[in-house]
Design a protein around this nucleic acid. Structure first.
Length: 263
DNA sequence: ATAGGCCTGGAC
DNA sequence: GTCCAGGCCTAT
């Protein structure tokens, strides 16, 4: 679930829930999160007011009064859940941010792979990250320069957050389908024409997902069986040319594509 | 370039 | 029981 659009949606939920509020305590309920957020960090969080929540790529940046930043990454299954006063804490909740007025923001993450890190004011954050896929700074020129001399398949290059931030395994497949590009193509082999199509396709794919997240309540668009064109559709007909969608493994992860119209 | 590790839960 | 999963890091 959580690529750029889903993380942005979740960040909106967190903003409405806790921006402006003061943290009275933090509970870390799983040892996996205790590695990134040890007791020394939870102690420092006490009394901090959350003044803003930014997002960069798949990272959420909870800005605190002191200048510190709580950096949250959902990895595979993370999400925010707002808990009403008195409401029971669901089992998959790994971290609880408890505010002075009783508001609770919960990190809900069944696989417990999410990371939460408290960064000091002078810490350098996310310096390796490329431009957000939806940012005007993500251009054909930028992409061409970052892909030059790289022979990795384009699908794998798109998962590199230094190339473009916020694209994950699902939308990489979806964007390549929209751009009609074979995911196995060596990155540097893409000329201006295909690069132009690719940048537009990435933008459009993520923007569409952002709009959907806005429209529907709940980030996962449940009940909409047609939300992907190729992802998780192995063996089903391509919506553009009718040939069967294929699945291959690249870098240990599934790629879905249509050999009929992606070249 | 590839495999393994971190974790849990759902599909089979 | 086995296999698989949308991320990312480290080791080989």
């Amino acid at each position: 679930m959580p690529e750029l659009p889903e993380v942005e949606h979740a960040a909106g939920i967190a903003r409405r829930a806790i921006v402006g509020r003061v943290i009275s305590s933090v509970r870390v309920l799983h040892r996996s999160q205790r590695r990134s957020l040890p007791p020394s960090a939870t102690r420092r969080l006490k009394g901090e007011r959350i003044v803003a929540i930014d997002r960069r790529g798949k990272y959420q940046l909870l800005r605190l009064t002191s200048g510190r930043t709580l950096v949250v990454h959902f990895r595979m299954t993370g999400d925010w859940v707002v808990l009403a006063p008195g409401e029971a804490v669901p089992k998959p909740v790994r971290v609880l941010l408890i505010c002075e007025d009783g508001m609770r923001l919960a990190l809900h993450d069944s696989r417990a792979l999410s990371t939460v890190i408290l960064a000091e004011p002078d810490a350098k954050l996310l310096e390796e990250l490329g431009p957000d896929a939806t940012h005007p700074g993500f251009t054909v020129i930028w992409l061409r320069d970052r892909l030059a001399a790289r022979r990795v398949p384009i699908k794998l290059a798109l998962l590199d957050q230094a190339v473009v931030a916020g694209v994950g395994n699902i939308y990489a497949s979806e964007a390549l389908w929209l751009a009609r590009i074979d995911p196995r193509t060596p990155a540097a082999a893409l000329g201006p024409e295909r690069l132009t199509r690719l940048v537009a396709a990435i933008r459009r794919t993520l923007q569409k997902a952002l709009d959907r997240a806005e429209r529907y309540y709940g980030a996962d668009g449940a009940g909409d069986g047609t939300r992907f064109n190729v992802y998780d559709r192995e063996g089903e007909p391509c919506r553009r040319c009718g040939k069967r969608v294929r699945r291959i493994v690249q870098g240990g992860r599934s790629t879905y594509w249509c050999a009929g119209c992606q070249r």
